[in-house]
Design a protein around this nucleic acid. Sequence first.
DNA 1: CATGAATGAGTTTTCATTCAT
DNA 2: AATGAATGAAAACTCATTCAT
Lengths: 188, 188, 188, 188
Amino acid sequence: MATTKRDDICDAALDLFVEKGISASTTREIAERAGTAEGNLYRHFAGKDALARHLFGVCAGRFRRALIEAAHGEEEPGARLAALVRSMFRFSREDPKAFAYILQVHHHEFATGPVRNPQPLPKDVFAETLQAGMESGAFRPIDPALATSWIVGMTQRTITFLETGRVETPRDQVIEETIGASFRLVQK
Amino acid sequence: MATTKRDDICDAALDLFVEKGISASTTREIAERAGTAEGNLYRHFAGKDALARHLFGVCAGRFRRALIEAAHGEEEPGARLAALVRSMFRFSREDPKAFAYILQVHHHEFATGPVRNPQPLPKDVFAETLQAGMESGAFRPIDPALATSWIVGMTQRTITFLETGRVETPRDQVIEETIGASFRLVQK
Amino acid sequence: MATTKRDDICDAALDLFVEKGISASTTREIAERAGTAEGNLYRHFAGKDALARHLFGVCAGRFRRALIEAAHGEEEPGARLAALVRSMFRFSREDPKAFAYILQVHHHEFATGPVRNPQPLPKDVFAETLQAGMESGAFRPIDPALATSWIVGMTQRTITFLETGRVETPRDQVIEETIGASFRLVQK
Amino acid sequence: MATTKRDDICDAALDLFVEKGISASTTREIAERAGTAEGNLYRHFAGKDALARHLFGVCAGRFRRALIEAAHGEEEPGARLAALVRSMFRFSREDPKAFAYILQVHHHEFATGPVRNPQPLPKDVFAETLQAGMESGAFRPIDPALATSWIVGMTQRTITFLETGRVETPRDQVIEETIGASFRLVQK
DNA sequence: CATGAATGAGTTTTCATTCAT
DNA sequence: AATGAATGAAAACTCATTCAT
């Protein structure tokens, strides 16, 4: 009802981009799935590339907001870190397309150059929390960017592994263990 | 024993695929850079897609062999794990295109369906080493596939961070710290 | 009510297919002659093959309708048969491209398998008339499909002979004699 | 044993041309099926087109010889005509590829212009017999070329009908009836 | 705002033919 | 004679983008 054509186009495009990749998705398919005319896409976006970029902003924003919200609930650095990792798992379940798209875009070359980041990225939320924890003495001192790479890389790959691999361990246990693993990385 | 045209095509394709992505690389460019005629590509491979798949096999094989070779030098599980992580960093420097391509393919949708793995993958070498370490009591008991995800994900992202990010910490120190981090994940 | 591009494409394709054969006609030529862009062909048809099949349906339909119309004018089986044979000659003159194309397609191997006949074919009109004539006792009893083969094969080849061969006998006389020949085949 | 590479190429090409049409058959396929190298085709023929023309000559010659041989056995015009029609049916069974190829070539446009006929064609054997029969008074007087068209067209289509259609009448009876039909066309 | 036919430059792919070995 | 990799011109087909309605 409240969904405008613009939203329909975004939804359809995100679906397809995640399903088959950005360049393999044609504007015709996008329009078809959105229930609109091909040319209409150009009324709302400068082109397919711009649409893909826009979606990245939207998805990264959603992800970042989820992380921030999770972190806001906790005062203590350790609890914050746990909340962030848990939030990554939760987001990958609640908004799987956005999560998958963010990963994908990381490896996509846009026609008009690399993605600019005019806005802070999800990983920055991690970096801030880690830095705060180090300053407060809750975590051991390491390059916060390095620790972020560790935790984000570890968690990201574990999520992919959960979704696609043959997993023996139940999901909830994987999450708890991965949170524990994050602590091992930064504790003194 | 000059390089054959087939090898030239593989080299040119790997170059381009890493540089601009698979779908953004045209067969014409590949042929041009390989110094051969476009049609010749189709004598050696069924098409661009088949070429891209073939290259994945080649690169994954090179990576896996590097890991195996590194592991063979060490008897003790801890030393083996260290050797494997160190080997990932080394491989990403010695064969950066193969490394980059493997990462990229992870997020590429092939036209003809997902990549089959008729051959064992690099990560399997990690899993074997971790399993052995757990059985010998050197590492704490966890799902080896999960631990593999952790260490590979962490290391991979750290390498990317090293190559592209603004890094404060010197490379050698990053490597040693990441090896240490791997231990933290699996030690008792 | 100008002719649409789709019709232009059909016309151009039929022209070329008859002139130089299906596989010798390129999509570029077709588009050029139709005064449109090559890619536009693919908006209206799945490809060259589909276009060629479509044209067969159209031409066979035109031919069949001409035969039915001719038969409808006559009550008596003998008169109907005469009308049908005469109509074949007439159609080959009035719509020579359609006629030539139907013959050609008979010997063309489509890429996607043999031509399906979702619709009744021209020869069926012959078979019905012959069957009716046999049941009413006007013609001798023979397998109607066999008699159809005789008359259609004879007439078809005679038309080709008229158009391409060195003919001594004038066209009108050939037609009358061929009608007579048809009677000889089926009369008691 | 006695088959030379040249013969192998001819056999393979005839197979393929009949199976999928001339232009749909590639030189590579021909060479493959002949068990030889692609380039070797050019040692024996000027090209694919020349090979296809050569095969037409060979096949038409075989057909013509079969007809002549059949006719030679009979003195009387009626018996000759019967022998010729019977011979067409027989040839289509004994050498089905040659027969099918002759029909196909009729509708094929060669790259280098229409097929020349430096040698007499099969239909000429019919024309001679019919002419002789008319001169001797055994047949009614008609343009021999026209009568040839009738009989050849009728027989040819009946053969195709026998091979591809749903036939109720048994083959032998079809042959006898078609011979009878030929007589009806030319008898007084 | 909406449509979808039309565009045309670009892509992958095919294939008869050549040629060094 | 035989080979089959290499060629290159031309084919079929794709698709983001435009534009008249």
